[in-house]
């Protein structure tokens, strides 16, 4: 390589960290297209990227409309897993008795495949939004609990003793010490949870729904409409990325002091 005196603005732009995943994505898409052309893969096995883009372009109002219910179910399921997961983690971490009763059962229940029991929710709650939310909740719940339990348990017992010796009430000590300490772990659980909640919502749509991206997926598989199916997958991936990014933003706002966020503290100060 020839030496450059100063990196040009184009190469600087190409090196920007936010651009790197896109560069990789473009390379994958190009490889995908080339593979189809070189190996003569028929369109009913793998669609060409061009066809997928065409569907995304022509059908985007339909896809956007269908992603509405999926997003809605994902968000409600995710919020439910946070609202129920964090207090349950508090109880598990706070009491050995609760832990010994609840935790093994929780792990046990987690080993049941959600796809297998999702039809049951349709039987119970019909074809509405509720089975989807429950499926999203069931998938998103576990990572929140596991991470939050670990977060609550990793508090230095000396730190808690110190706060107790200051005559702080249990609640006050919890708010001042235990909860902030557990936040980084809780957020890493929430990030896993939000992407799994998308999967959960789609599972819910698979087994019994007439709306949502999961429904589009199943319909297009049934008619071998592979470009539409791939377009739906792209939408799902985008949904996951956007929700993950949102949680990540909230995390930066909530725990600016944490090791993982310190670069930003420097920029900010």
């Amino acid at each position: 390589m020839s030496e450059k005196k100063a990196p040009g603005s184009v190469s600087k732009l190409l090196n920007a960290s936010w651009l790197r995943p896109f560069v990789l994505l473009v390379m994958i898409v190009v490889g995908w297209d080339l593979a189809i052309r070189i190996f003569n893969i028929p369109a009913y096995q793998i669609p060409a990227p061009g066809d997928v883009v065409k569907v995304l372009y022509t059908d985007w109002p339909e896809l956007l409309a269908q992603s509405g219910p999926t997003t809605y179910a994902t968000l409600l399921g995710f919020l439910a897993s946070a609202v129920f997961g964090i207090p349950i983690a508090m109880l598990i971490a706070g009491s050995r008795t609760v832990e010994s009763y609840v935790y093994p059962l929780l792990v046990f229940s987690q080993s049941i495949p959600k796809v297998a029991i999702a039809p049951l929710f349709v039987v119970w709650f019909g074809f509405g939004i509720v089975p989807k939310i429950i499926a999203a909740f069931l998938l998103g719940f576990f990572p929140v609990v596991v991470s939050a339990v670990q977060g609550f348990k990793s508090v230095d017992p000396d730190m808690v003793d110190l706060a107790r010796a200051m005559k702080g009430s249990r609640f006050r000590v919890f708010c001042a010490v235990n909860l902030p300490h557990a936040l980084p772990a809780i957020f890493s659980g929430l990030k896993v949870s939000v992407t799994l909640a998308v999967v959960g919502a789609v599972v819910g749509e698979f087994v019994g729904s007439n709306s949502g991206i999961g429904y589009v997926l199943q319909r297009s598989i049934g008619t071998f409409d592979l470009p539409t199916m791939f377009a739906a997958l792209v939408i799902l991936a985008l949904l996951g990325v956007i929700l993950f990014w949102l949680v990540d933003r909230i995390e930066r706002f909530a725990i600016p002091w944490h090791v993982s966020q310190r670069a930003d503290v420097f920029v900010g100060s």
């Binding site: 230095d156 000396d158 010796a165 200051m166 005559k167 001042a176």
Partner: peptide, 16 residues
Amino acid sequence: PHGDVGIVFQNALLLP
């Protein structure tokens, strides 16, 4: 805990 004590441990244990 009677509150009329100040405690210093081996680690500073400041809240980060």
